[in-house]
Simulated assay, not measured.
Amino acid sequence: MIKYTCLHHISLTVTDLEKAKNFYGKTLCLNEITRPDFGFPGAWYEIEGQQLHLIVDPSSQTIRQDKRLSSREGHFALRVKNYHDTLTWLKKNEVEILEKPNSKSGFAQIFCADPDGNLIELNVEQKDL
């Protein structure tokens, strides 16, 4: 049996590091942290004790070709403090979103995508709306 202590990090491939850093750092307001020099470009972000790793790989087979927003495709989810503040911020920054405030999951969800189409869910408990 495997016993886990936490989710440590998620890695995503991106094609344009500056666009990705602008999105994750400025639009999603994530805190960039020091990354070792692996000999290829990328960036790391800290999210409440866990990490998001961006890896530049234009030939990646994991980059979505169809950039339409979907809640059914692979994504990662970040819990936010305030649904409405997050929604307002994303709209102000002209981020395309898919709203699901009454999802059967029990979470009020907002889906968006980074410049390469990686899907991100931002959510809160519905009771906290």
Rank of each mutant, 00 (worst) to 15 (best):
M1A: 12
I2E: 14
I2Q: 13
Y4W: 12
T5R: 11
T5Y: 03
T5W: 00
C6N: 14
C6A: 13
L7N: 09
H8I: 01
H8E: 11
I10C: 02
S11N: 10
L12G: 07
T13G: 02
T13E: 14
T13M: 02
V14W: 06
D16P: 08
L17S: 06
L17H: 08
L17W: 06
K19A: 15
K19C: 07
K21C: 15
Y24G: 00
K26Y: 11
K26D: 15
K26Q: 15
T27Q: 13
L28T: 07
L28M: 14
T34G: 11
T34Y: 14
P36G: 08
G39R: 05
P41D: 10
A43F: 03
W44Q: 00
W44M: 06
Y45L: 02
E46Q: 15
E46R: 14
I47R: 05
I47Q: 04
Q50Y: 01
Q51R: 13
Q51T: 08
L54S: 04
D66F: 01
K67F: 09
S70L: 07
E73K: 10
G74K: 05
H75N: 08
F76M: 03
F76N: 01
L78E: 02
L78P: 00
L78R: 01
R79P: 00
H84K: 13
D85C: 02
L87P: 03
W89C: 01
K92F: 05
K92E: 15
K92W: 00
N93S: 07
E94I: 00
E94M: 01
V95I: 12
I97S: 03
L98Y: 07
P101V: 13
N102F: 13
S105K: 11
G106W: 12
G106R: 07
F107E: 13
Q109Y: 07
C112P: 08
A113G: 10
D114L: 02
D116I: 05
D116Y: 01
N118D: 00
L122A: 03
N123A: 11
V124A: 04
V124G: 05
Q126E: 13
Q126A: 10
K127E: 09
L129A: 07
